[in-house]
C-alpha cells in the first residue's frame, strides 16, 4: 500500500481538510469557551447617584 501514488486531487483534498481544521479549531473553541469566572455578590461598596 505504500507504493500507491497520490493523485494531485487527493493531495489537494487532504491539504484543504488540514487547513480548514487548523483554522476551524480555534474558532470552535471561541464559540464553546467555558466561562471560568464567578458571579458572586461582593461586599464593601456603595451605590452612587447619577
Amino acid at each position: 500500500m505504500f507504493n500507491k501514488k497520490i493523485t494531485r486531487a487527493e493531495f489537494l483534498k487532504v491539504s484543504l481538510i488540514g487547513i480548514l481544521s487548523f483554522l476551524a479549531l480555534p474558532a470552535l473553541r471561541r464559540f464553546f469557551r467555558k466561562d471560568n469566572t464567578a458571579r458572586k455578590d461582593a461586599r464593601y461598596y456603595k451605590n452612587l447617584a447619577g
Binding site: T37, A38, R39, K40, D41, A42, Y45, N47
Partner: peptide, 16 residues
C-alpha cells in the same frame, strides 16, 4: 477581579 453588573458589585473570582 470585581465588576459592576447591573448596579451590583460582583466578584469574578469566588471559588475560582
Amino acid at each position: 477581579a470585581r465588576m459592576n453588573i447591573g448596579g451590583k458589585l460582583q466578584t469574578l473570582v469566588y471559588g475560582k
